[in-house]
Each structure stands twice: as C-alpha cells, then as structure tokens.
Design a protein around this nucleic acid. Structure first.
Lengths: 323, 323
DNA sequence: TTGTACGCGTTATCAG
DNA sequence: CTGATAACGCGTACAA
C-alpha cells in the first residue's frame, strides 16, 4: 500500500501567511500577472518564501479554476512505434515543457471493461489531445469522439503514400518489372501500411507494370520465407517492405534460404532504422524534420508561436546493398 | 489556435437540477457511496439523467477535493525502450484502467529551461510515480526527488546481472575462453549495461577466465566493425552484446567483413527481439512475465489486490545459429 | 494590495 | 431511511 509520509505540500495560503500578505498577492506575484503592480519588496519576499517552502501550485486547483490544464495528451497505439516517432515525442516533450505545457502519453490498448475506454477523461482534462501512429482502433475513436479538448491527428505529417511511391520508383529505375509488397498483418499497422502500399501501386500503374503482389507477413522469419518463395515463384524481382523491420526480416529469411539480395530478390525498406545501416536500401524518414513538423502542428493548435515548417524534404532515398 | 467550440461539459450540478435533486445526492449515486441509502427511484433517475447529459465528473474538482488523482505517471528515458517494456506498459495500462486508474507516460528528455525540469508536478498530481528504463539522468532524479507521490523504481524487475551471467555462461559452455563485451556508448543505456556487464565479468571470474574485453559501440556498423577487429586481434572468440540490437549490428559488421558467426566470432544477445529470430542466440526476456511483474509491483504499491507474482523464470536461453 | 466569490465534486452535519 | 445544506480544497481574478 502507498504509505504517503511526505509532508503536505505548501499551499499558496501557506506562502501568504508566512509572507504576511494576502493569497491574492501571492497569486499575482507567482503568475506575474500583467497590469498588477506589486512592489519589488513584497515580490521578492513572496518569491523567497515560496521557494523556501518549496511551494508548487496545486495543479488541480489551478486547472479547476482555469477550466483546463496545460496538459497535452498524446494517444498512441499499443505497439512499438520505433525511433522516428519516439524521437519526435522527445522533441515535442521538450518544446512543450519550454512553453509551460506537459506532454503525457497514453498507450491505448484494448480494455477489458468496455466502459473503461473513455474513462481517461475522468482522470485528466488536457488542453489538447493528439494522436500519433496513424491507427484508429475503435478505442481511439471512442476516446477522441468525446474528448474534453480539441483533437489533433497526425495524418499528413508523414507522406506515407509518397513513401511507397519512392520505394517502387527506385525499384523500377533498377529495371524491376514485377514488384512485391510485404504487408504487415498487424491490424494496428494497417492504416499506414495501406497508404504506403497505395503509393507502390500508383508507381507501378504509372510505369505500366502489373499490380504489386501483396504478401502478408508477421514477425516470424518462417512467414517471411514463405512470402519470399511466393514472390520468386510469381516472377517478382523487387520487394517493397512496409518498413525496415519487415525488410530486415525478409532479408533474414532470404539468407536462411540461401538467397542473396539484390540478385535473387531486391528488397527496399522504409524509415532508415539504425540496423538498416547494415546494408538495407531504404526510404529514410528524416527524424529532425518529422519532429519539427509535429512540434509545428501542436504549437499552432495551441496558439503558441511556432517556428516555420522546415523546408527540407522529410523523405530521402538511401541506397545500400539490398536493392 | 485552439478554437474550442465544444459544448461545456455537464456538471454534477446540471444533473442535479435536471433530476430535481441535490448535488450531494448525485454524488452519492454516482459514487455508490456506502452507508448512504438512496431510493432505487432517485438512483435510476440520477443515473439516467447523468447518462443523458453525458456527464463525466470533472477530474480536477474531484482530485482537488480528494487530494490526489487516480493517475499513475510513468517516467521513461528519452530512448526507444523496445518491445519488452512497450508490452509491459500496454499490459499495465490495461490493468490499471480496469481498476479505475489511468497510466500516463512522460518521456523525460533534457529541457532547455532547467527550471522546467520539475514543472511536471505543476501539471499533474499523480497517486503514484514510477520509473522504467533503469536510467537516472539528472532530470529523473530532480523529478522523483520532489514528486508529489510515492516513487516506484523498476530496479529488480529484470535481473540484468543474471542476464550477463547467462550470456557468458553459455559462451563458456561452448568452450570459449576469451570473452568480449559490446557496451553501448549511449549514457542512457549505461545503468542496465553496466549491470549486465558485471554479470558477464562474474561468470568469467568464476570460470577462471580473464576479464571480458569491453568495446564501446554506437549505432554505426563501422564502429562495430572496428570492435570486431579488436576482439579478434585480442583473441576473443565469443562476444556478449548488451542487447539484441547491438548484437545484430555486430553480426552485420561481421558479414560486411566477410566473417561468419559463430566460427569466426560467436555473438550472443539479450531480449529476443523479433529480428533475433533470424538466427541470433540470445537470453530471452519473457514479456508476459515482465509485464506481470510490473503489474504486480504497481498494484501492490497502490494497495490494490494483485495476482501473485508469476513463477516462471523471466529469463530463458534461446540458442540459434550465432553462438 | 486585499477581500471574496467562483469553479465543481465530496462529505460531514442536519432535517424530514 | 432519504435526502438537503453547506463547508471544504486551492488557486484565480474581479471589485473595492
């Protein structure tokens, strides 16, 4: 059990009493309220006692009065996002903290009690709700539909369709004419995956090629081995993988089967995760640009001044040995 | 700017007025307060109006009165934790949600304004603070030292020292007598890495072998290539990698150099990430057990009844082709 | 600068 | 047994 022996937090009333001023004065000093002229003497006094008492304004009281907290809640799907989004979240955390906000992340997984789904808003009243990860399981839908704050979606930050297009266009430029697509079976990945696949299909269609051959894969090497067999049997010579993780598993399966990339089968991934440096051709996602775009979106939604959107392209083709 | 057009949330006073009862009655009904006997008729009436109005009790008002919210804040370091912890966080989120709590995650990264470090407690007043990831950057220290709630550390959940021991013991059982250690240079990984290394050193010492040869590695294949050269030059035949990601990079570097595992150099990782299935011998971390342990710790700290700790060992050796 | 009402749910005290 | 009244928690902001 939580035995909370910690001393009661000092309230603004404590600071007021110790300073011999009114609570209002304390509030004005601590908030640097404009149009309220407090003498430098009392200001210093209040500041000093506040620090001495370790006063931290009670967030609930403040939020209760204000109507909403300075909290931004980010809803993310229950999967490993990978380092691109992780980095973006880190940068966003910092950017928000510097402006007096706090970023709190909630991994929305399936709940046992269905009525617990939207209980989150019974615990926290954020100023802004954002979603990341592109997935919309029904829980996220339930959560956003009755959120006590505006909701910001991450759609549009990463141009998934263009990712797929770039993958396919590169393979096509390398004279591949039958393209395969490694589609993750995880439903949480589907929103992104289908956009990326659409881009691949676009490029194939424009080049006059037949539609890409989709194979669903999980996280087992065996499954990828089967997919590889299917592709080769189908005359496929180049495969676009939904992301680098998938691509690396495909390459591993090929290695197990004694096949070599790109001669037996070319593989191109997406994201440029660290392990991709081992030789995976991929469409790199610029983590700095990605983070900057997120920050721009969120700050704008909050009405905070934001840096202009970065001009550098978020996508970049990185050719290595696998394709 | 956030233009918040959404209608004001219905308050308990609204429900009371619409139902023709007092606010107290509404509170009693909604909270099923013991020792308060409300007639079934008014109970139904209140419940119905509350649902009709979509009333969700204001979390701040409740928390203000109660003294603390039903929020658990988890502090994690600003790095990609990987799927083991991600899974644990997902299970924990669900377990807490089922019991009326909310798990909110804060990625504590470096802040520009140093005084923003502990501002988190100016935004949210959790009932419990927990840390995951084993890292103690100074920000986490600052955050936990003045947290407005008890702090629970994850130390002890994963027996890192035993991880290292198991790695080394396996290599030793395979007749390796000179052991190398691939240590990540990322300072955020250090807390874990040094415990794991200590386990490796333990095993070497007990077997009468010389101390393991440490090489620091980053996320570049080139760096790993250099480390591999060093190890081989130093007579090392088996390497313990801090985790699977490091191990896979080492293997990739070996492949680039035309070396083969385990004949030229045996490599053993830890965690058993999905990609490890491609052929990496590793000390698998049981994600179910890991999650269960976390849940047990947190629920116990909250004074909630918890399932007994799982008996299955959290670690398991998985031998594949790399060692 | 100060007094004080307010935001909203909780709970001790009281009345029917 | 049912339900109402009112004070409380704590910071904010308007009137004085």
């Amino acid at each position: 059990m939580v035995k909370d022996d910690r001393p009661r937090r000092a309230t603004s009333a404590d600071v007021a009493r110790e300073s011999g001023v009114s609570r209002a004065t304390v509030s004005y000093v601590l908030n640097e309220t404009p149009d309220k002229h407090i003498s430098q003497a009392t200001r210093d006094l209040v500041l000093h006692t506040a620090r001495r008492l370790g006063h931290v304004p009670n967030p609930m009281a403040r939020a209760l009065k204000t109507g909403s907290s300075n909290i931004v809640v980010c809803l993310i799907p229950a999967l490993t996002l990978g380092f691109v989004f992780d980095h973006a979240l880190d940068e966003l955390t910092r950017a928000l903290a510097d402006r007096g906000y706090a970023l709190l992340i909630n991994r929305v997984s399936g709940f046992s009690r269905t009525d617990a789904i939207s209980d989150l808003w019974g615990h926290v009243a954020p100023k802004l709700v954002m979603t990341i990860g592109g997935t919309l399981p029904h829980e996220v839908g339930a959560l956003t539909s009755n959120a006590p704050a505006p909701v910001l979606n991450d759609s549009g930050i990463v141009p998934h369709r263009r990712v797929g297009r770039m993958q396919a266009e590169y393979l096509i430029s390398q004279a591949h004419v039958r393209i395969g697509y490694a589609m993750p079976e995880d439903p949480l990945l589907r929103v992104y995956a289908e956009q990326r696949f659409a881009g691949v299909a676009d490029a194939c269609a424009e080049a006059g090629l037949e539609a890409p051959q989709i194979r669903e894969v999980d996280e087992q090497v065996g499954c990828h081995g089967q997919a590889v067999q299917d592709w080769i049997a189908g005359g496929v010579t180049g495969v676009c993988a939904h992301n680098d993780d998938v691509a690396l598993l495909t390459l591993a399966a090929m290695e197990n089967a004694g096949l070599r990339a790109p001669s037996d089968l070319a593989v191109i991934g997406s994201d440029d995760v660290p392990l991709a440096a081992a030789g995976l051709t991929t469409v790199a996602l610029d983590i700095e640009v990605c983070a900057a775009l997120f920050i721009h979106e969120v700050l704008t939604a909050l009405g905070e001044p934001a840096m202009p959107r970065p001009e550098r392209d978020i996508l970049r083709l990185v050719t290595r040995s696998s394709a």
